[in-house]
Each structure stands twice: as C-alpha cells, then as structure tokens.
C-alpha cells in the first residue's frame, strides 16, 4: 500500500501544478475585461423591461414554420433549438428578411423572416466568410495567450476575411525582434488553437458605447486608437465579441460556438514591413476547416502548404482606415 502511495503522490502534485498553470493563463487583464463585459451585458438585459412578443417566420428545412419569440431576448439560436439538434448544430449564421446577416447569439429586435445558413449550400459564400472571420478572431485569442509573460504582446487587427487568399490572418505586435518561428513553435500554436476550440465556448456579441470599449481596451494602444474611428462609422457604438476569456472588436457576425472549427493548423508567422510604432508587427496565418467537412490528409496538406505563403490581405499602416471595421450588419452580396 505504501509503495502504491509513493507512486500516486507525485501524480497528485503534478495535477495541482497543472491547475495552477491553467489558472495563471487567464491573465488579470482578460479578467478585468470580462468583468466590464459581463456588467454591461447584465445591464443591457435588465433594460429590456416588459417582455413583448415578435413573430419569426422560419423558412427552410425541415418545414416552414412560425415562432412567437420574445423581443430583444430570443436569438436565432433559440429558434434553431425548436427545429432539432441537427439544424441547431449546423447553423452558422442567420439571414433576416433575405438580406441581413445576423449573429446566431444576438437577440432579435423585430418580427422578421428567418433563414439559417450552413456550409453545404449551393453557394455558401456568406457562411464561409463568417467561418474565416471567426478563425481570425480565435487566432488572436490563442496568440495573445500563448507567449510567456515577459513578452509584450498587443493585438492589432485582421483584414476583411477572404477565403481565396488561402489563409486567415491576425496582425499582432510582439516585443520580439526578428523572430522566425520553428516548426515546433507553430505546432504548439496549432495545439493551443485546437484546445481553445475544444472548450466549446459560445461566442457572445454585445453592442457597447465608445466609452466602455475604450475602458476595455485601455491597455491596448492599437485598439484604443482604432475605436474612435470605428465608432464614428457606427453611430458611436462598438460591436464586441467574446469567446471564453477573450474579447475583441469586429463587425461580425461570427460562428455561434467555437466547436464548429474542426481541423486547424497555424501555418506561418511572418514579420511585416510597416511604419507602426512600438515594435514589430507579425502576421499570424493559419488554415482551418469546419468540423462537418472531412478531407483526406493529402489534400489538407496541399492547403497547409498554400497557407504558408504570405497572405495578400492589406498590411496595416500607421495611417489609414481599418478593413475590418464599422457596422455590425454585413450585407449579402
């Protein structure tokens, strides 16, 4: 029995250590941001007041139907729950009245015609774009958490998602000069990405005032510089997205949950040639596929190889506007 205990004891210590490590990865900064976000979310929920009903006409499989939902409380995701597990899990983004793309977890404000998009339509361009944007967003979350504490890291921005460019991108400022990632380092980043997705964080969305956004991003010089510009295009509101402990600005929409992302590789990190002050900007690139699409490893290898080339997306500069900016509502082409 004693010998058994000897074997078990070191294991126990190990688990405690790993818990500590887990806890330490949630930095104080993200805890502070999440607190502000939660307070604002609660405030907005309470301000709904008396519950009113709206009529949502669903069009699509398995059959057209009409739902009576709660105004400013019910989301497209709630409607999808009525339609069964399969529809709920495959829906990527909602299409309101045939023209407005709407985040799945964002409350509906008026009666509308609802369609739910997924990856296997004849023309899934909108769903693909949402998927690619979410991958960029999660890449930012992973990268900001993956480095050691003594390395200063600030997320800058990501260009408008374009699947044809062969990879999704996040431009990040790191306090390292001339860093060229080894294969093992890229592998670690990919693994962190997979772990993040496996936690199945629902992606929440919140429209906040400029002041609150500035408070949330007060320690990020790039974001706080971008916020006034974005707010000017969006009637003084900033759209925030939150997955787990990570918060970012984007016009959206995004996936309803990180578990949509299946196969993932962070393919390359390339130093960019820009005039932004404060340190060198690196372009993080990756490729991913939705969980529902199965592809053999050879074909996926070809996609990975392509993802290693420098992405053609706009390179950020000290002056000029953002690509991934202003309004929350993106229109279908």
């Amino acid at each position: 029995m004693n010998s058994l205990r000897k074997i078990i004891r070191p294991v126990k210590k190990c688990t405690i250590l790993s818990y500590r490590r887990l806890l330490s990865t949630y930095s104080e900064e993200s805890a502070r941001q999440c607190e502000i976000f939660a307070t604002e979310q609660k405030k907005q929920k309470e301000s709904v007041g008396r519950i009113e009903k709206i009529e949502v006409q669903y069009e699509g499989q398995p059959e057209n139907s009409v739902f009576s939902m709660n105004k400013n409380i019910s989301t497209p995701y709630d409607c999808a729950k009525h339609l069964g597990d399969k529809i709920r899990d495959r829906s990527v983004v909602a299409l309101l009245n045939g023209k407005t793309l709407w985040h799945m977890n964002r409350p509906l404000s008026e009666s509308c015609i609802l369609e739910l998009l997924h990856y296997n339509f004849p023309n899934p361009a909108a769903a693909n774009k949402v998927f690619w944007r979410t991958c960029s967003f999660v890449l930012g979350a992973v990268a900001s958490d993956a480095f050691k504490d003594n390395i200063e890291i600030h997320l800058h921005s990501f260009p408008s998602p374009n699947v044809k460019s062969g990879s999704f991108v996040y431009d990040i400022q790191i306090g390292l000069d001339k860093w060229e990632p080894k294969n093992s380092e890229l592998k670690v980043l990919s693994l962190e990405f997979i772990k993040f997705c496996q936690k199945q964080y629902p992606i929440e969305c919140l429209n906040v005032d400029k002041k609150i956004a500035l408070e949330i991003f007060k320690n990020n010089p790039h974001k706080s510089q971008q916020i006034p510009d974005i707010a000017a295009h969006n009637s003084d509101k900033i759209t925030l997205f939150k997955a787990g402990p990570h918060i970012d600005i984007s016009r959206g929409p995004m996936l309803p949950n990180t578990n949509h992302i299946g196969r993932i590789t962070v393919t390359n990190v390339i130093k960019l040639d820009t005039d932004i002050e404060g340190g060198s900007i690196y372009r993080f690139q990756g490729v991913a596929l939705p969980r529902t699409i199965a592809l053999n490893h050879f074909a996926y290898g070809l996609i990975e190889e392509r993802g290693k080339l420098l992405n053609s997306g706009r390179i950020p500069g000290a002056h000029g506007t953002l690509n991934e900016d202003n309004s929350f509502v993106a229109h279908v082409n």
């Binding site: 990856y119 699947v163 062969g166 939705p290 699409i293 592809l295 074909a299 070809l302």
Partner: peptide, 8 residues
C-alpha cells in the same frame, strides 16, 4: 463553392 474546394 464549398470552403475546402475553394482552398484546393
């Protein structure tokens, strides 16, 4: 138009 076919 499926995402993996675009990438390929």
């Amino acid at each position: 138009n499926l995402i993996h076919n675009i990438l390929l």
